[in-house]
Computed example of a mutant assay.
Amino acid sequence: MEDAFDMDIAGFTPPPTRHFDPVDHGRRRGRAATANPSGRFEPISREGFDDGWHLEEDLPAFATEVQVEKVKSIITRNTSPDVPFERSINPYRGCEHGCIYCFARPTHGFMGLSAGLDFETRLFAKPDAPRQLARELSKPGYHAKTIAIGTNTDPYQPVEKEWRIMRQVLEVLADANHPVSITTKSALILRDIDILSQMAEKHLVKVSMSVTTLDRKLARSMEPRAATPPRRLETIRALAGAGIPVGISVAPIIPVLTDHELERILDSGAAAGATEASYILLRLPLEVAPLFKDWLLENHPDRYRHVMSLIRSMRGGKDYDAEFGKRMKGSGPYAWQIARRFEMAVKRLKLTRRSTALREDLFTPPDGGGAQLNLF
Rank of each mutant, 00 (worst) to 15 (best):
F119M: 09
P155M: 00
D3M: 08
E360K: 09
Q67N: 08
L362F: 14
P15T: 08
A61T: 07
Q157C: 04
P230R: 05
L170F: 08
Y304V: 13
L59K: 13
N36V: 07
L190A: 01
N78A: 03
I244P: 03
L257T: 13
F5M: 13
K318F: 05
L281K: 07
D215H: 01
Q132T: 04
R315P: 06
P155V: 00
E201Y: 08
R77Q: 15
Q337P: 00
K293P: 05
S38C: 11
C102L: 13
P16F: 07
D154V: 09
Q168L: 15
E65Q: 03
Y304G: 13
S80Q: 02
H97R: 15
I165W: 00
S221M: 07
P179Y: 01
L188M: 13
S45D: 15
R264N: 07
S73F: 13
A174H: 15
T151R: 02
G273W: 06
P285Q: 04
R105A: 11
S181L: 05
R18E: 14
L117V: 15
N90W: 00
S186L: 10
G150L: 06
L282I: 09
S249N: 08
L262N: 02
T107Y: 11
C95R: 08
K347W: 06
E201S: 13
S73V: 09
R31L: 15
L291V: 14
E298V: 08
A129M: 02
L188D: 14
L137W: 02
P158H: 06
A200W: 05
R216M: 05
N78R: 01
L282Q: 10
I280M: 12
R18N: 11
R354L: 02
L286P: 01
F292T: 12
I254N: 05
P365A: 15
A219C: 01
E136H: 13
L137R: 11
M344S: 10
A10M: 12
G325D: 04
K139F: 07
P179T: 07
S331M: 10
A63Q: 06
T258N: 13
N90P: 03
S114V: 10
A176I: 06
E56Y: 04
G330E: 02
E96I: 12
L188F: 07
Q337R: 15
T121G: 11
I149L: 04
R353D: 01
I193M: 08
D8P: 01
H25M: 00
E160I: 12
D128E: 14
S208F: 04
T153Y: 09
Y156L: 01
Y334E: 09
I338H: 06
I195M: 07
G247R: 14
E120K: 02
D6M: 03
G269P: 03
P84A: 08
G98F: 14
D321F: 00
L133H: 02
D24Q: 11
Y92N: 06
A272W: 03
G269D: 09
I248F: 01
H19G: 01
T275M: 05
A272E: 04
L55K: 12
T153F: 10
R305A: 13
A335V: 09
W163V: 09
D361S: 04
P252K: 09
T364C: 14
E343Y: 03
L282P: 04
S278Q: 08
T356A: 02
G98Y: 08
Q337K: 15
D367T: 14
D21W: 11
E86T: 07
G325S: 10
V288H: 11
G98P: 13
K145A: 11
R232W: 01
I195S: 03
L170S: 02
R46M: 15
Y142N: 03
F363L: 13
T364N: 12
D302V: 00
